[in-house]
């Protein structure tokens, strides 16, 4: 399965960005191969509206089955659900730590948005 992490960094040691729609970028991790790639989200940083929706489209297009991020608002949640993407919220510091939590089964899939829109 492919997992998207929100981050402003370039590798697994980078910090996990608590924002989804306006994260600087995404790290797309393949659990089967352990390979990853960085995907830019720059266009959404300054979007007037709909950043979370646009980001959800990106995650869907990347073929990810899960998103691990800090928080996720209601519109992004609805869009990710429509794409069949599981959402995991966590406040750990790095992507590596979040991946470890996920693989140890300590993250629970979210069943609702955990923040209001425009929270950050």
């Amino acid at each position: 399965m492919k997992i998207v992490f929100t981050t402003s960094g370039e590798n697994l040691d980078a910090p996990l960005d608590p924002r989804f729609g306006r994260a600087r970028g995404f790290l797309l991790y393949d659990t089967e191969t352990g390979q990853y790639e960085i995907v830019d989200n720059e266009q959404n940083l300054n979007a007037a509206q709909g950043a979370g929706i646009q980001a959800a489209e990106t995650v869907s297009r990347l073929g990810a089955g899960a998103l691990i991020t800090g928080h996720c608002g209601p519109k992004a949640f609805r869009a990710l659900m429509a794409g069949g993407i599981q959402i995991y919220n966590t406040d750990v510091a790095t992507i590596a730590a979040a991946l470890e939590e996920f693989q140890a089964g300590r993250l629970m899939s979210a069943n609702a948005a955990d923040v209001e829109g425009h929270w950050a």
Partner: peptide
């Protein structure tokens, strides 16, 4: 331009 339609599914 306003992201009012999401092409997911």
């Amino acid at each position: 331009q306003y992201h009012a339609i999401a092409a997911i599914g």
